[in-house]
Amino acid sequence: MNIVLRELMSSRKSLIWWSVGLLAMITGGMSKYGGMQSSGQSANDLFAAMPKSLQAIFGVSTLDISTALGYYGLIFSYLLLMAAIYAVMLGANSIAKEERDKTSEFLMAKPVSRSRIITSKLAAAIILLFLFNLITFLLSAMMVNYYDSGAEITSKIAALVGGMFLLQLIFLAIGTSIAAVSKRPKLATSIATGILLLTYILSIAVELSSKLENLKYIIPFKYFEAKYILAGDGFDAVFVILSVVIVVVLINATYILYQKRDLNI
């Protein structure tokens, strides 16, 4: 419990900064919706006939940005990117920082097992992610409801944010497992962010080429896309199962690998 509290305290400041970022992104983005509401630029049948790759380059999508919720879907893709960056760095840092800051000797000399330490750190990280999502949900629901009210909206946003939470759990687990196995703490954050960048670049490439379609199973950004959730299709069961499997495997790997590793004191 002490470790959980200690972790929460040390991550307090960064969570506040990220919340400021979320606030700016959501309120700033949605306030633009108010301005363009009247012009009503919905995708017409011409754009609908366009191949997917050209749609991506043109910057049009199946989201109907003339409604507040559709416009929010547009912002949401950037929120996903922010959320993933936050989660992957949180995961990699929470484990790697002890060795980086030379505090691992102190921590390991305490009468707690390594698995206890990981459990506490993971618990703290999940609490932080939960807060991150709660803030995102509250801000989003408030802003979208301000422009367009309805019972549907809040539940749709809850579904989107739920997807974001799963995405964050995946990236958190990627971060912790890399930090658990990597002997050099600095390298752990680099590799974790490298994976994040790679999956992001691939997610763009998949949009451009239908040949790469099958790659979407290894790209978490493609698991919970706003355009499918908002269209009422809900979560794709395949991706939910896949996320759970990835998270469970990587978290297990974190426990096993970290317990066996020689620490860099």
Partner: peptide, 26 residues
């Protein structure tokens, strides 16, 4: 304490600003 988190968040902040700026035509 470490460079990467700070540089990564700064670059992505500007990147998101760019992406979003061009969508809304600011």
């Amino acid at each position: 304490k470490s460079v990467l988190p700070l540089s990564l968040s700064t670059v992505f902040a500007f990147f998101i600003l760019y992406m979003f700026g061009s969508v809304i035509g600011e």
